[in-house]
């Protein structure tokens, strides 16, 4: 169990480093062309849906993606009614899972594409009455690092070492430092911290998890 997590942290650290992010906001830049103003990027819209339940932002995402979701449905199922149902199912998932979106793992487009593919797969199997013991989310699991919730479990042991933590904190990537400071130094809830930093809740949780893993490593190796 422990080795597994260490490997994941390590992998992800590598990713972050290679992205060379200058500030905490950099990671939330979407890959959309720059012609689209920052306030209206897919990323910003999804953030408003996830952090502020914005109907207006959801409307815009719906306008932008419903035709594409429909087109994917037609390509795979060749059935208009199923494809319409897919638009509803996929956009419902966008709404419900918006707080879980993790911008460190991919962009909004790939997030919506993969959830569309997954809903489509499940719908089609249901329609064909095929066995449902394996679902799309089993076949295409979301980021492997999301499967473990280590943060809560390790809070205690980290608190004991608090005097040393600030020294270790500076060794984390800036984006992770920011998250740790909001949650552990300012005692904000995860939701408050995400809104404060203007990052998705899912991103916050993932960064927190990585930061705690890294801190644990640093503390472990310093003794």
């Amino acid at each position: 169990m422990t080795t597994l997590n260490a490997t994941m942290d390590h992998m992800h650290m590598g990713n972050l480093a290679s992205k060379a992010e200058p500030a905490s906001k950099a990671a939330s830049t979407s890959s959309r062309p720059l012609t689209q103003s920052d306030t209206d990027s897919d990323e910003k819209l999804l953030l408003d849906v996830g952090n502020h339940q914005s109907r207006e932002a959801f409307n815009k995402l719906f306008e932008r993606f419903s035709n594409k979701i429909f087109a994917h449905g037609m390509k795979i199922t060749r059935n208009e009614q199923l494809s319409k149902d897919l638009v509803q199912e996929a956009m419902m998932t966008v709404w419900q899972k918006a707080p879980l979106y993790n911008s460190d793992r991919g962009n909004v487009q790939s997030w919506i594409f993969t959830l569309t593919r997954n809903r489509c797969f499940d719908m089609l199997r249901k329609q064909k009455r095929q066995p449902l013991c394996v679902s799309a989310d089993d076949i295409w699991p979301a980021g492997m690092e999301d499967s473990e919730s280590l943060v809560e479990r390790d809070q205690g042991s980290l608190a004991v070492e608090f005097s040393n933590i600030e020294r270790f904190l500076t060794q984390l990537p800036e984006a992770q430092q920011a998250v740790v400071e909001k949650v552990y130094l300012l005692n904000l809830t995860h939701e408050e911290a995400a809104a404060d930093l203007e990052i998705p809740l899912g991103t916050l949780k993932s960064r927190l998890r990585l930061a705690m893993g890294k801190l644990r490593q640093l503390i472990g190796t310093s003794e």
Binding site: F70, A71, S83, W95, L100
Partner: peptide
């Protein structure tokens, strides 16, 4: 991609959106 699908998606989007945003969001996977 340019939409190559002949059937363009048409639906009563307003009521669909209403029903969607009435559902609760997930905070945890």
């Amino acid at each position: 991609a340019e939409s190559s699908s002949p059937a363009v998606y048409q639906a009563d989007t307003a009521s669909m959106i209403d029903s969607i945003i009435a559902t609760p969001q997930l905070k945890e996977p």
